[in-house]
Nucleic acid binder design. Structure first.
Lengths: 293, 293
DNA sequence: CATGGTAAG
DNA sequence: CTTATCATG
């Protein structure tokens, strides 16, 4: 079934909102690195989700078998879950209130097939009487470590991701890549950026990928930055260590990357920093954006 | 320094207790498998120890590096600690208020040298103007599993232990072997013994070792059983699973094994089943006995 | 400083 | 069902 047929919220263009005069429909898309969905549920993720009325939920670091993910999320979701081959590691998912019309569970030809770091789901969006395709990706880039094989894998993944970004942008009506990309793009994205210029996550070579992704070469849009403006933060990840969270000594490494046509209909980007919710259920905060078609 | 010179509790034989007329001294010896001393301290072991006024504390399954054991127990103890070679595994210790005059950290020639399952400490006991030697052993027998190499190791350990029991009994004035011996001797020692006759811990072949240890062949005494009488229990271990503790579905696998001369001065054997204390800090309960010289 | 898997109990 | 360690984040 398509989004159009399964009850996407219809908003009216006027106050009265007469029946059938639907003008725009809102699609709320959230991404969050849950750092183990079992731990996240123990810490109150369910309450957050119940309150937030999300249409498409993108998860990273699920770190649980598929059966457990389905049991925890409960009924009412179409769940696409790419587990990592290594048990308890990585794992990305897209849970949607309506069924995707197509799905893909990896990028690249071979190396990243079982890494649990990339899933794609295509949704049908009603448009002027017809439909358009929205591709949503839940991505989890390697965390990296300077002078280690992890860093080599990270660059290799970013290379393959760049290729896929080009394909998505040229073949899909709307495309959105969300997730934990494990790189801060600019000095606005890390509270203590000066102390991290030689650390994986803020290396010049890593940041250059994002210059290309968000620059003329690829032409994607950084939705959260566009809506938040050129200010420091808001961050999406804080170390568990010390008082990083209380001091807001964070990193913005979770993104909504949208093609321009999609970015144009984005609004209300919010980092759910768990002050309005009961608990901090992960070291990452959810990043929630509404798209109106 | 010997016990005699470091302030063992002197008890008087009469109500008045005139100075210098010390008749008997009490030595309180406790054994407990702590199942990780760090976890035990988090669960309230310190409160138990503070309340119990123990002179010699024998520990099994310490499962922590020596520095941590010393930090947790704090000042005022002489600590003898045999770590296992494998980190976080086994480990036995004897903590005493007075210093031992000699110590040994294993049994056998080679195989069990780094297993962290046997420590011996010799203490001097004043006796008729002179001194006698009390050897205290903290022992941790393998837990075993039928048809596995663990069971082979368990029998091998019990064999070597039997040899050492003979040596101790013939060479020491008083000898006491305490600890988690991981075998229930008789049907009184396991609540559900019928369901466990084929399980490691209550195998006929294992029980036969204890028939010999406590029979004419070795001639040791089961202090706790002697004082408790021929009744079911009291048990010293309960599985964490289910309601085993609440239902008192336990095993008596922790012992005070004493040479006859020592057993003759034993009194007040108590299993600290954690109803009188704040918390159950281990799956084993401490077994505390007073010896009066 | 947290996650889950693991071996061991 | 709990322990500590491990690799990973």
């Amino acid at each position: 079934m398509s989004l159009a047929s399964e009850g996407i919220v219809q908003e009216s263009g006027t106050a009265a909102g007469g029946a059938g005069i639907a003008v725009r429909q809102k699609l709320r898309i959230a991404t969050v690195n849950v750092n183990g969905i079992r731990a996240a549920y123990k810490r109150g993720m369910e309450a957050w989700l119940a309150e937030r009325d999300v249409d498409i939920l993108c998860l990273q670091e699920v770190r649980a078998p598929d059966a457990i993910v389905r049991e925890l999320l409960g009924d009412g979701w179409h769940i696409l879950h790419a587990e990592a081959e290594a048990k308890g590691r990585a794992g990305v998912a897209i849970a949607s209130r309506t069924a995707p019309v197509a799905t893909r569970d990896h990028i690249g030809d071979d190396y990243f097939v079982t890494s649990g770091r990339w899933v794609e789901a295509d949704f049908e969006i009603p448009s002027d009487g017809g439909t358009k395709t929205l591709t949503v990706v839940s991505a989890y880039v390697h965390s990296g470590q300077v002078d280690s094989p992890k860093q080599v894998d990270k660059y290799r993944f970013l290379d393959v991701m760049g290729n896929r970004l080009t394909e998505l942008k040229t073949t899909k009506d709307y495309a959105l890549v969300v997730g934990d990309l494990n790189v801060g793009h600019t000095t606005l994205d890390i509270k203590n950026w000066k102390g991290n210029v030689k650390k994986s996550g803020f290396l010049p070579e890593e940041r250059a990928y994002f210059d290309r992704f968000f620059g003329d070469e690829h032409g994607w849009r950084d939705v959260h930055r566009s809506l938040a403006g050129e200010v420091a933060g808001p961050y999406t990840w804080w170390s568990w260590r010390g008082q990083a969270f209380d001091n807001d000594a964070g990193w913005r490494i979770d993104y909504h990357m949208a093609t321009p046509e999609l970015a144009a209909v984005a609004s209300d980007a919010v980092v759910d920093r768990a002050e309005t919710y009961d608990a901090r259920f992960s070291d990452h905060a959810p990043l929630v954006v509404d798209y109106r078609f």
